[in-house]
């Protein structure tokens, strides 16, 4: 995680979809990128082959604000094969009208503090690890006030 960035090159890890999840190389905060249809203006996330509404295939990147409000969440105590429980997952509604689902990356003892309507922001975190130890890094949500947290 964040405090281990010096070891990143020694770890086996992949970034899930760097085309719509950007981690700036200058150390800036990570963020999501929506696609705006050049023809009808509709926003989509993640990027799509063509606009489902008007069938235009021309899009512009539309970087998203990092913080949004939690619409709903669950804490999975029986996870997918290969993932560890408890695992918190939620849908966050962003100011641009896009809803994104991702892990809520807080330690298990803080999961009881998750609330509908709370402010969460996009961070980078490990979302899964395969049986060979390869970590997948992608977007996760953490509370705005405690964004240094995480499992």
């Amino acid at each position: 995680m964040a405090e281990k960035t010096t070891k990143v090159d020694e770890q086996k890890q992949v970034i899930y979809h760097p085309d719509f999840f950007k981690i700036p190389e200058d150390g800036g905060a990570p963020y999501l990128v929506a696609s705006k249809c050049r023809n009808c203006g509709q926003l989509w996330f993640p990027n799509l082959r063509a606009c489902p509404e008007c069938w235009s295939d021309a899009f512009d990147d539309a970087p998203m604000e990092r913080a949004g409000k939690l619409y709903v969440y669950t804490i999975s105590n029986v996870p997918q094969p290969g993932l560890k429980a408890p695992l918190a997952f939620g849908y966050v509604d962003f100011p641009n009208g896009i809803r994104v689902g991702a892990q809520i990356d807080v330690p298990p003892e803080q999961m009881k503090d998750i609330r509908i309507g709370m402010d969460l922001q996009v961070e980078a975190g490990v979302i899964r690890e395969d049986k060979d130890g390869v970590k997948t890094v992608s977007y996760v949500f953490r509370p705005v006030a405690a964004s240094k947290g995480g499992k």
């Binding site: 899930y16 979809h17 993640p46 709903v72 969440y73 669950t74 999975s76 029986v78 996870p79 997918q80 993932l83 695992l87 997952f89 939620g90 849908y91 689902g101 991702a102 892990q103 509908i116 979302i127 899964r128 997948t136 992608s138």
Partner: peptide, 18 residues
């Protein structure tokens, strides 16, 4: 992409329930 994030079918319906 939501399944990559760990979403399960029980998880999806749990959120509908909540």
């Amino acid at each position: 992409p939501e399944a990559m994030q760990g979403l399960t079918m029980p998880g999806l319906y749990s959120m509908r329930a909540r």
